[in-house]
Write a protein that binds this DNA or RNA. Structure first.
Lengths: 204, 204
DNA sequence: CATACTTTTGACCAATTGGTTAAACTGTTT
DNA sequence: AAACAGTTTAACCAATTGGTCAAAAGTATG
């Protein structure tokens, strides 16, 4: 479901750029494709965003922000820790499923060696997990959860959430014999599976 | 450690192409870069591999073969199931660590929408997990392991192995505060962590 | 309506890129 | 040494690509 609404040119460009960059990668995306998708002249791209690099940076910031910013907010709620974990998994997973190309886009660009604007943007982003670490350590002290390394914990959660989505073109044909429904069903039930695995790791 | 040995031109090209394609992606890789890296003339690339697509296909087949073919062989050994799982994790993880760019390369190209040669190659590859599924079901019947979905099991193992490596440019700065040693130490101990998680999921 | 400002366009450009071709080089066979 | 096949190179080409520019089209202001 796309935004068919009357949007101004700058927004139209950004939306088109998001699509093309995530579908083709930075190098594979062409300014002409983006212009066509936005239904405008190529010169207009340069009028609003002076260069491909600048346009890419805008899209990457948006994508990274969508997946990284405020995802830890859930841990600032009043819920007990297990509920927080469960909600985190639910929220993060649904964010990925709603935007399946974004995690791949971020990881793909970050792993490029040459002219890696994305890597610079990450450094400047200032995202950190201090709050989550403090919270986990506090829960350990209280005896609510087992001795647990917070860094390892969060990576495991992210791995179990992200991988099945970015590896879809591998999983669907090889593991689910190209059965689209089987794959979708698998993803739908994924939240409970991950929650169970993580709980079994931290419950005393 | 690269092969500085006297290799024939075809091998030199393939090695250079592997490097450049994995570092830059298909669209980002330029034939001239590959020629330079191989220390030869650009025309020679076309002499041995007629087009960029053909050269890419050769590299992708190699990369996919390296990560996918025979990785399930370990489950045909005489070891008991738990030892097989442990060895699988060990082998797969060390394969990824030895070639950290390959999984990202495969996933990145598979997720491209346009002119996706990689996706066609996967379909033709014929890799399947039937043997693994049979084995797991047999182990359940024997009562050696809990009721376990083999598809879910293998995806979880792969997720826990692959993600920490392909997400390195995210994990190292954000989770390990740019501490290279901390990240490396984490990866080094990863095998035991994954094994423990998986065992806790399948042990009766 | 006239002026000034912003937005949009098409024509154009220089650089890059994948690919071609014919000539030159190498080693082997006759 | 001539003929031959396989290998390597430099020069070149057509298409693509990111980007520029001046003119045109809107739009607002007085």
């Amino acid at each position: 479901m796309k935004n068919i609404k009357h949007q101004n040119t700058e927004e139209k460009i950004l939306d088109a750029a998001k699509e093309v960059f995530t579908e083709e990668g930075k190098a594979g995306a062409k300014m002409q494709m983006i212009a066509d998708r936005a239904g405008i002249n190529k010169s207009l791209l340069h009028y609003y965003y002076r260069s491909k690099d600048k346009l890419f940076a805008a899209v990457f910031k948006f994508a990274f922000g969508k997946m990284a910013s405020r995802i830890f907010d859930i841990f600032k709620s009043d819920d007990d820790f297990f509920t927080q974990i469960e909600k985190f998994i639910e929220n993060y997973l649904s964010a990925i499923i709603k935007n399946p190309f974004i995690p791949m886009f971020i990881l793909g660009e970050l792993n490029k060696k040459h002219n890696n604007i994305a890597a610079e943007l990450i450094i400047k982003s200032g995202v950190n997990i201090d709050f989550f670490e403090d919270l986990v350590n506090e829960q350990i002290k209280k005896g609510n959860i087992r001795e647990t390394n917070p860094k390892k914990l969060i990576i495991n959660i992210l791995a179990l959430c992200v991988f099945p989505v970015i590896a879809k073109p591998l999983i669907e044909p090889i593991i689910f014999d190209n059965d689209k429904n089987a794959y979708n069903e698998y993803i739908k039930n994924r939240k409970d599976e991950i929650t169970q695995i993580i709980f079994s790791q931290i419950k005393p």
